[in-house]
C-alpha cells in the first residue's frame, strides 16, 4: 500500500472512531451552542461600549464567537484530541508496539488527528455556527475565493494544533504523568488561542506577544482570513512557519523519546 493510501486509511479510521460517539457529539453541539450564545451577548455589550474594538465591527465579533465554537473541538483547543490516547499509550508502555509499526509515528498520529478534526468540524462544529448565523448578524464573505483561503488556513491551523499537542503528549515520556501538562495545555489553549477574547483585543505589549505565539495560528488567523482582516499570504506564511517549526520539534523530541524507549528496553 502506498504511503498516501496508508495515511488516508488511518485518517478515515480516526474519523470513524469519533463518529461512533453520537450522543457525545450531540451533547457537544448543545454545549457549544449555549456557550456561543453567552459569549455573543458579552461581546455585543463590549463592542457596544467600544465600536471597532480590535478592528472588528459587531458582526465580525459575532462571527468570531461562532467560529470559535465551531473550531473548539475541531482543533481540540482545550486538548482532548488524539494526544489523550497517545499519552495513555506512553504511560502504559503500549507505545513500544507503535514504534515497531512500519509507519511513521508522527504521521500516523497526525493522520488520526486530522480524521478526528474533520469529524469534529462536520459533526460538532458546523451546527453551532449555522445556529449563530441564523439568529445573529454575521460578517461572512460572499466570494468563493475567500472561503477557499479560509479552508487552507483551517488546514494549517489543524497542523499547528496537532504540532502543539504532539509535543505536550511526548513530554509524558519524561514526566510519566499527563495531569500537569494537560492542565497547562488547557490554560494556554483557551487563553492564547483567543477562545475567551479575540487576540487583537489584547492590550499593549502583551497583545503584541500573544499575536505571534503559535496559538494565534489556531483561531485568530482563520478568523481573520475569513473576514478579510489580514493578508492571505502573510497569514499562510505565519501558520506554515509555526506548523513546520512545531512538527520539526516534534520529530526531534520523538527521536529522543524513541532512543529512551530503546535504551529502557521498551
Amino acid at each position: 500500500m502506498g504511503a498516501g493510501r496508508l495515511y488516508t486509511a488511518v485518517a478515515a479510521g480516526g474519523f470513524r472512531r469519533y463518529a461512533t460517539y453520537r450522543a457525545a457529539t450531540a451533547a457537544g453541539v448543545f454545549t457549544n451552542t449555549a456557550f456561543g450564545i453567552i459569549l455573543v451577548y458579552t461581546y455585543l455589550a463590549l463592542w457596544d461600549e467600544k465600536p471597532h474594538l480590535g478592528g472588528y465591527d459587531q458582526a465580525q465579533a459575532v462571527t468570531y464567537v461562532w467560529l470559535g465554537q465551531c473550531l473548539y473541538a475541531t482543533l481540540a483547543i482545550q486538548g482532548g484530541g488524539v494526544e489523550k490516547d497517545l499519552m495513555e499509550r506512553i504511560r502504559t508502555g503500549a507505545i513500544a508496539i507503535d514504534l515497531y509499526r512500519p509507519a511513521d509515528l508522527q504521521l500516523w498520529w497526525l493522520a488520526t488527528d486530522l480524521g478526528r478534526s474533520l469529524f469534529q468540524m462536520l459533526g460538532r462544529g458546523v451546527i453551532p455556527f449555522l445556529v449563530g448565523a441564523v439568529f445573529f448578524p454575521m460578517a461572512l464573505p460572499a466570494d468563493a475565493g475567500t472561503w477557499a483561503a479560509f479552508l487552507v488556513a483551517l488546514f494549517l491551523a489543524m497542523l499547528v494544533s496537532f504540532g502543539i499537542r504532539y509535543l505536550v503528549a511526548l513530554s509524558v515520556f519524561w514526566l510519566l504523568d499527563g495531569m500537569g501538562v494537560n492542565q497547562v495545555l488547557m490554560v494556554t489553549g483557551i487563553f492564547f488561542s483567543g477562545m475567551t477574547l479575540p487576540l487583537n483585543v489584547f492590550p499593549g505589549a502583551f497583545g503584541e506577544v500573544v499575536r505571534v505565539l503559535p496559538w494565534a495560528a489556531q483561531l485568530q488567523m482563520p478568523a481573520d482570513v475569513l473576514m478579510g482582516e489580514t493578508g492571505v499570504a502573510g497569514a499562510f506564511a505565519f501558520q506554515a512557519a509555526w506548523a513546520v517549526a512545531l512538527l520539526a520539534a516534534g520529530r526531534l523530541l520523538q527521536s529522543a523519546a524513541t532512543r529512551r524507549v530503546v535504551v529502557q528496553g521498551g
Partner: peptide
C-alpha cells in the same frame, strides 16, 4: 455519553 450536556448548564 451525553455527560457534556450538563456543562452547558453548570459551567455555562
Amino acid at each position: 455519553d451525553a455527560a457534556e450536556v450538563q456543562n452547558a448548564f453548570t459551567y455555562g
